[in-house]
């Protein structure tokens, strides 16, 4: 019973994706038939060639990779450092700050977008990479995630390291962080995927085609070629391909990290 449900759910989730791939190989007129065909009658790669030319593919991919890559590194560093501080360091106002920060999770992103935009504009960073990236470098969710991962670590190892002569910095870099590797990997992958699909913020803060990222480019394509669905599907397949690869490679470590097996790291 449970298996049937799971298989059903998996089909529901994967079917649109497969259909997207199928449609991307159809001719423009093919979809106009009723009922719409499931598979292309004469598969063509012409949509891909056209989409690559229209996107422009290289530029968009590069921009998105820079955004996702920088944010991934930034979020891992800030989340790990802040998470560690909230767990292991004692400083005045620590718990108050932490509570205040978690409150930020309640706010919908849309609330924060306008003040952020105003700040970036005041800095003169509109339509630049610093403007695109800087606001995404700290993630409250990421801090909570890393804090939890550190909380689950056995205290003995840290005590042993202190006795071995490790200071706070050594402890963080050489003991605590390597021990939290599953969580770090999971956070990195999730941050990367999240930014690859980021739409609202890049839409607001970038203007020129030179700065366009994947989701924004797709939206533009949708506006430009609303009637040509196979064409749009080809573009969608192209920009989700890197994400798909990341998923394939990292799914196992993401699962491990999310399940916090980092906590029962074998001793």
């Amino acid at each position: 019973m449970r298996k049937t449900l799971l298989v059903g759910a998996a089909i529901v989730m994967i079917a649109p994706f497969l259909y997207m791939v199928s449609v991307s190989f159809m001719g423009e007129s093919e979809l106009l038939r009723w009922p719409p065909p499931l598979f292309p009658t004469s598969p063509t790669t012409a949509n891909y060639a056209a989409a690559i030319a229209a996107l422009p593919f290289n530029r968009v991919l590069l921009n998105t990779a820079v955004l996702a890559g920088c944010v991934m590194i930034g979020q891992v560093l800030t989340s790990a450092a802040a998470g560690y501080a909230f767990v292991r360091l004692k400083f005045p106002g620590r718990d108050g700050t932490f509570r205040l920060m978690t409150l930020a999770l309640i706010l919908p992103t849309i609330f924060l977008v306008i003040p952020r935009y105003l700040m970036i504009e005041a800095l003169g960073w509109i339509d630049t990479f610093p403007g695109l990236i800087s606001t995404e470098l700290v993630s409250v969710w990421g801090i909570l995630f890393m804090r939890h991962a550190f909380l689950m670590q056995p205290r003995d190892i840290e005590d042993a390291a202190r006795l071995d002569g490790a200071g706070e910095w050594t402890l963080f870099w050489q003991v605590t962080l390597p021990l939290a590797r599953p969580a770090v990997t999971a956070l990195a992958v999730l941050a990367f995927m999240d930014q690859w699909r980021n739409f609202l913020w890049p839409l607001m803060v970038t203007r020129s085609a030179r700065m366009e990222v994947a989701e924004v480019a797709l939206a533009r394509l949708h506006g430009d070629y609303a009637a040509n669905v196979p064409y749009q599907m080809a573009a969608a397949v192209l920009v989700s391909l890197p994400l798909f690869l990341v998923c394939l490679i990292a799914s196992r470590s993401v699962m491990a990290g999310v399940r916090f097996t980092g906590a029962d790291a074998r001793l």
């Binding site: 056995p154 003995d156 005590d159 042993a160 390291a161 006795l163 021990l179 590797r181 790291a265 001793l267």
Partner: peptide, 14 residues
């Protein structure tokens, strides 16, 4: 300048 051995070996797993 003291060394301690814990109930768990507390080795660095990595």
């Amino acid at each position: 300048d003291v060394a301690m051995v814990f109930q768990s070996p507390a080795l660095y797993p990595h």
